[in-house]
């Protein structure tokens, strides 16, 4: 009798520990206090068709973060990423081209960019190239303003990514994966499932096989990029998807691809497509 009680206790303890190790995404709803009133975002939905064999539900990384971090995203004032959005508004209106061109000169207010974040990356029908938002911005900077291209992971670029992404906040991610995008998407998918580095880890090893588990002190999410660019508390600054990819591949102890390389562009398309249906979170807040 005594022995049975003991083994039951041990079993219960074992279960409790397992429960802790696989800390599932938190059930919660994200409603953001914006200047235009509250906005509820879709942070959890059924997986897009191309993923249904692998998972049923897709979750924004927001669900995997701790209470304090999640709360920061609920109010635009508390969201430290908005500082960078403010900075980008100044840059948007500033006459910075060689002939005094500004973003506002052609595009009027930033709200003209509404919807763009949700469909990027996409293939440019004229050149047949896969375009990130960074590529679109740089084509304006170099061709229309006559300036040197902005550094892909530089501050002025990331500020602008934040401002433009914010215009699409609340809209569902909907990147095209068929037609002209299909070869890029296939390439991205191949990279996603390829093991890199001395640790021989693929994106899928963490973000598909072990999502919800702890990797040391970090809670592994599905690796969704609907919240990018994100304000990262660790860096006290913005982080773009391209930078996140570099960080992940580096962590496998590999020589990484460069930001804006064909490989990482294709990967961004594929990873974005895994989040088709989640809301664009504009500037999210993560650890």
């Amino acid at each position: 009798m005594h022995r049975t009680a003991k083994s039951i206790a041990a079993l219960a303890l074992g279960l409790a520990l397992t429960g802790m190790a696989s800390a599932d995404p938190v059930e919660d709803t994200l409603t953001v206090e914006t200047d235009d009133g509250p906005l509820t975002l879709t942070t959890m939905t059924s997986a897009p068709d191309h993923l249904t064999d692998t998972m049923d539900t897709i979750w924004s990384g927001w669900h995997y973060r701790e209470d304090d971090t999640r709360d920061m995203e609920r109010d635009d004032f508390d969201n430290p990423g908005m500082v960078f959005v403010d900075r980008a508004i100044d840059s948007w209106n500033a006459p910075q081209g060689v002939k005094g061109e500004s973003c506002a000169g052609c595009h009027e207010g930033p709200e003209s960019m509404a919807g763009l974040r949700a469909v990027l990356p996409r293939v440019d029908p004229e050149s047949g190239k896969l375009m990130l938002m960074e590529d679109h911005i740089n084509s304006c900077v170099t061709e229309r303003m006559g300036l040197e291209a902005w550094k892909l992971t530089g501050d002025e670029m990331k500020d602008m990514l934040a401002l433009i992404s914010l215009q699409s906040r609340g809209q569902p991610v909907n990147v095209a994966i068929d037609g002209a995008a299909a070869p890029f998407w296939e390439k991205g998918k191949e990279i996603y499932y390829t093991r890199f580095g001395q640790l021989e880890m693929s994106c899928a090893n963490c973000h598909e096989d072990n999502q919800g588990m702890m990797i040391r002190a970090d809670h592994l999410s599905q690796g969704q990029i609907n919240g990018f660019p994100t304000y990262r508390l660790k860096d006290a600054g913005l982080l773009s998807s391209q930078q996140r990819f570099i960080g992940c591949v580096r962590d496998t102890r590999a020589e990484t691809f460069k930001a804006g390389s064909d490989e990482f562009k294709a990967l961004e398309l594929y990873v974005a497509s895994r989040g088709n249906g989640l809301s664009v979170e504009g500037v999210s807040v993560r650890h």
Partner: peptide, 9 residues
């Protein structure tokens, strides 16, 4: 550079 105040009341 970049000093920009924000307040909420």
């Amino acid at each position: 550079e970049d000093a920009k105040p924000r307040v909420k009341v």
